[in-house]
Simulated assay, not measured.
Amino acid sequence: MSDLLLLHGALGAASTLDPLQQLLKPDFRVHTLNFRGHGGSTIPQEPFRIEHFAEDVLRYLDHHQLQQVDLFGYSMGGYVALYLALQHPDRVGRIFTLATKFAWSPETAAKEAKMLQPEKVAEKVPAFAAALAKRHQPADWQEVMRHTASMMQHLGNHPLLTEDTLPGIQTTVRISVGDRDNMVGLQETAWAFQHLPNASLQVFPNTHHPLEKVNLNQLQHELRQFFGKVTV
């Protein structure tokens, strides 16, 4: 069996990938991890950064004695996966991303961060707030959200995946997005695909941004095809 590491999105945790992991277990050694400050791990004193999350992946690989691994990255996890391939190509096999945002500017970051105000979330979307509290306990989900908003603002001013850096990623990549994703546009997804030298592009029909709304049976089938584990 080959090793496949699943990387969660912003405000997510390893637990959010459990249903997908169960579907893939028959054909892969499936790994998940919590980025620092997520899933109940201690919130660090330093700010959240894509670079730090990439370090978390390297630390996981070293701890489990994995020289190289294939990666599936959902949303922010896809950004981390591609950045890791740019910095440490020897540690990364193939990459499949879903719903990863590439269009980062001060304006788009401000728009995203505006939606990450814990007090307003708790007031207007209490069910989501409760889910975040459970997902990140005993850590404070509101601090996780504030750190995430700050990270997005930093990324808006200092994007890591650009028209200059993306061509340096030589690994085989599948960039995918849902056709009904209201957070990640097809245009920015196609832009990333066009700048990657060994990439393919996929659009999932009738698919919104939240992982909970993704058709996991369809996703796991596409992952098996991409990573060479097609089930007849």
Rank of each mutant, 00 (worst) to 15 (best):
N198F: 00
E188P: 00
V203P: 09
N206A: 09
E212W: 13
G185N: 10
T207Y: 03
P210F: 03
P197R: 00
A199G: 14
V203N: 08
P197D: 06
H195E: 01
F193I: 01
L196T: 13
F204C: 00
A190K: 09
M183N: 10
H209E: 08
F204H: 01
D179V: 04
V214M: 02
N206L: 11
E188W: 10
V203T: 15
D181F: 10
E188R: 04
T207L: 05
G178S: 11
T207M: 06
S200V: 10
G178C: 08
P210Q: 00
F193M: 01
A190S: 08
R180L: 07
V214A: 06
V214Q: 01
H195G: 10
L216G: 00
W191S: 07
L186A: 10
S200Q: 15
Q202I: 02
S200P: 04
T189I: 03
L216W: 04
V177R: 15
L186H: 14
F204E: 02
V203K: 12
W191Y: 09
F204P: 07
R180C: 03
N182E: 15
T189C: 04
A199V: 11
H209I: 03
V177T: 14
Q194E: 14
T207N: 07
E212M: 11
R180H: 14
Q202E: 14
P210G: 06
H195F: 09
T189Q: 05
